[in-house]
Structure formats: structure tokens, C-alpha cells
Design a protein around this nucleic acid. Structure first.
Length: 168
DNA sequence: CGCAAGATTGGC
DNA sequence: CCAATCTTGCGT
């Protein structure tokens, strides 16, 4: 079992943080005290106000507010009225970047991740450094990280072509 | 205030 | 292919 990833891990460019996440352990302590560790298998980087695929490109709104703050926090949002998608905010204040957790071992797909982890709006802004219910732990380095285009953002023009998806 | 679209999933 | 289900940003 590794150590919890410290604040410094998240205070870097999202393009440095995202590829470092596959293989690491996403840890969740549920209400009944049960602790589960899930190996992260797939993520995507969303890089600030310039990245048209990033929600922060809409500007600072109640929804994107947390992304504009310092990294090391959780950004969750409900999509299609059904799934809570989990993002880890990265960078220094103002970077407005985050990593979408697209898959964990046994639960591929961002919607499935949120369902397995029983996420809801109360996780918005949660600190990955202090939280007693969700955090990330270090693990053995993985051999190879693959890259691909991000999924479901065809509307974002040139940004749709970036190889900002990272997976095992 | 109304409305269309959404970083998805599962079923037909 | 398409419905589910509801929040959000934007236009009127």
C-alpha cells in the first residue's frame, strides 16, 4: 500500500499529472467504514480556459469554480442527469485544469467509476490531501502508458485531435 | 424563462 | 439506433 499522493503531485501542468495517474490507486472509504482501493486504468487531461473541450473554457461559473482554484481537489459534475464524473483538479490557482478519471480496474467508463464510488454533489471541492473518504495513493510504476484522442468532444475543433487520453 | 446539448450507459 | 434524466449556459 503506497503513501497518499501529496499536494505537490497535483500542482503541476495537467499534461504532467495525467500520464502519471494510470497505475496509481484511487482509494475510497465508504460510509460504513469499508475501504476499497482501485487501480486507475484510464484518464483524460482537460487543460484550462484555452482548451475548448474543458468546461473551464466557459469561464468561471459556479460549476467550473473549483477548477480555477489550486490543484489537489475534486471536481464532480452530473452528466445526462445520471452519472457523476470524477475529475482531479491540477495545477496552481488559475490553471483551471483537471484530469477526468475514465476508468478504474473492473469499472471501465467514467460513469461507471462515479457509480462504483457512490459519488454525488457533496464531493465537489473535496480535498484529496485531507479527505477521509477519497484520495489517491502511490503504487509501483507501470511499464507503458498509451495515448489516444479524448472521447466525446468532437465539438471542440482542433482540441479534439490532442492525444490527451492516457491509459494502461 | 425556455430550451437544447451534454467529458455516458445500456438496451433494443 | 435511441431513451433516460437533470443541470447548465445561452438566447429571448
Amino acid at each position: 500500500m503506497g503513501d497518499r499522493l501529496p499536494l505537490d503531485f497535483f500542482l503541476r501542468d495537467v499534461l504532467d499529472v495525467a500520464p502519471a495517474l494510470p497505475g496509481k490507486l484511487l482509494v475510497r472509504q465508504f460510509n460504513d467504514g469499508r475501504v476499497e482501493r482501485y487501480r486507475i486504468t484510464e484518464v483524460e487531461a482537460y487543460r484550462g480556459v484555452e482548451d475548448r473541450a474543458c468546461h473551464a473554457s466557459k469561464g468561471r461559473t459556479p460549476r467550473t469554480e473549483v477548477m480555477f482554484g489550486q490543484g489537489g481537489t475534486v471536481y464532480v459534475y452530473l452528466i445526462y442527469g445520471q452519472y457523476w464524473l470524477l475529475n482531479l483538479v491540477t495545477g496552481i490557482e488559475g490553471d483551471a485544469s483537471a484530469v477526468l478519471i475514465r476508468g478504474i480496474e473492473g469499472f471501465p467508463g467514467p460513469g461507471r467509476v462515479g457509480r462504483e464510488l457512490q459519488l454525488d454533489r457533496s464531493f465537489y471541492g473535496e480535498s484529496l490531501i485531507d479527505s477521509q473518504r477519497i484520495w489517491v495513493e502511490d503504487a509501483e510504476p507501470v511499464s507503458e502508458i498509451r495515448t489516444a484522442k479524448r472521447i466525446g468532444i468532437e465539438y471542440s475543433g482542433e482540441w479534439a485531435g490532442k492525444l490527451w487520453r492516457f491509459y494502461l
